[in-house]
């Protein structure tokens, strides 16, 4: 397993380079223009000058090479500098956003807290709720609990957040006035009261997001448990006189985790990627909002950097999932 992991890690580098190139070509091919959002009062000649000042007139390989160097060589140095106070990256060109004309990574770090607070919490909440629901629904298949759970989770999944988000805002912020409708990203948590304020502004986005994730996770958990509950080894375990609790929660659960681990591993990069619509509805302004606004403004360095970070996380967490398969089911071998 260790050699497998090392081999995959080494292989990840060319994979990522290739993904980076494909994303770059895709973004370059996509129609669009960084000056599209400017008012029409700005004349075409000025727009052309703006494009030139963004480096758009350089040939494609040069732009890709520059971006690669800036992201993979300069940005790590900047990170080391800020950690240890060194001056490695001084005077070197960083990846600059076309919208803000400032370093992309600074904005990414700025956005991280709210995305982790909201999307991360939603994921935790969803996992904590979904796994027990999935397990119990399967254990008592077609009981009232299972049917109600199925009903709610399918409704939850089929109602898009652009609707459920506005619905909870109208109920809890407009009609009842209990919760704020706009997330304050400048709010600092430093004592109990400010923590309560933070909780209040997180409740609605977390609720909306968690509903979606719970629905998805609990369905896969239930299906997988159902597959395993009637297996021979379960009978054997019961026959050995193991308690029902141990049979279900240790033996069946462990063997049912493979699809669930896959889904969670696919989801974790999305925590960092943010939740585009939910962030927009609640004005959380995290990574998701950053990505969508960059796409709309054709801010290619920003989109490229964000999707590349996203790709790194995907490759990494899919590797972790593969390693976990081996731990959950020792029969799985890769080499």
């Amino acid at each position: 397993m260790l050699t497998y992991t090392v081999r995959r890690l080494v292989l990840a580098i060319p994979t990522l380079l290739f993904i980076g190139l494909v994303i770059f070509l895709l973004l370059d091919l996509a129609p669009g223009d960084p000056t599209a959002q400017l008012p029409l009062t700005i004349p075409p000649e000025v727009r052309e000058q703006i494009r030139q000042s963004l480096g758009l007139d350089e040939p494609l390989p040069v732009r890709f090479g520059k971006w690669m160097v800036q992201f993979c060589w300069v940005e790590p140095q900047v990170m080391i500098d800020s950690l240890f106070g060194s001056h490695l990256a001084e005077g070197q060109q960083r990846v600059l956003s076309w919208q803000t004309r400032s370093p992309v990574m600074d904005i990414v770090w700025q956005r991280m807290p709210q995305t982790l607070w909201v999307v991360g919490t939603a994921y935790l909440v969803a996992i904590v709720i979904a796994l027990p629901i999935g397990i119990y629904s399967a254990y008592r298949q077609y009981s009232i609990f299972d049917n109600v759970g199925t009903f709610i989770s399918m409704i939850g999944f089929s109602v898009p957040p652009f609707f459920s988000g506005v619905l909870v805002i109208v109920i809890f912020a407009v009609n009842l006035g209990w919760l704020p409708s706009i997330y304050d990203t400048t709010h600092a948590v430093n004592d109990w009261d400010s923590f309560v304020v933070q909780l209040r502004q997180m409740v609605m986005p977390v609720m909306v997001l968690a509903l979606q994730i719970t629905a998805q996770l609990s369905r896969f958990m239930r299906a997988s448990m159902l597959d395993n509950l009637n297996q021979d080894y379960v009978r054997t375990a019961r026959a050995k006189g193991l308690s029902e609790r141990v049979v279900v929660l240790v033996h069946v659960l462990r063997n049912s985790m493979i699809p669930v681990v896959t889904v969670i591993a696919l989801g974790i990069p999305q925590i960092f990627g943010g939740a585009i619509i939910t962030e927009q509805v609640f004005k959380v302004n995290g990574i998701g909002q950053l990505l969508i606004s960059a796409i709309q403004a054709n801010d290619i360095p920003m989109v490229q950097t964000l999707t590349f970070i996203f790709a790194i996380l995907i490759v990494l967490f899919n590797l972790i999932a593969d390693v976990l398969y081996g731990i959950l089911d020792p029969r799985i071998r890769y080499d």
């Binding site: 494909v22 994303i23 990069p269 796409i295 999707t307 590349f308 790709a311």
Partner: peptide, 13 residues
């Protein structure tokens, strides 16, 4: 992995 990383909107454009 590649398809997971591709941004949907530019792809559609």
């Amino acid at each position: 992995d590649l398809f997971l990383a591709l941004p949907l909107l530019p792809l559609l454009l």
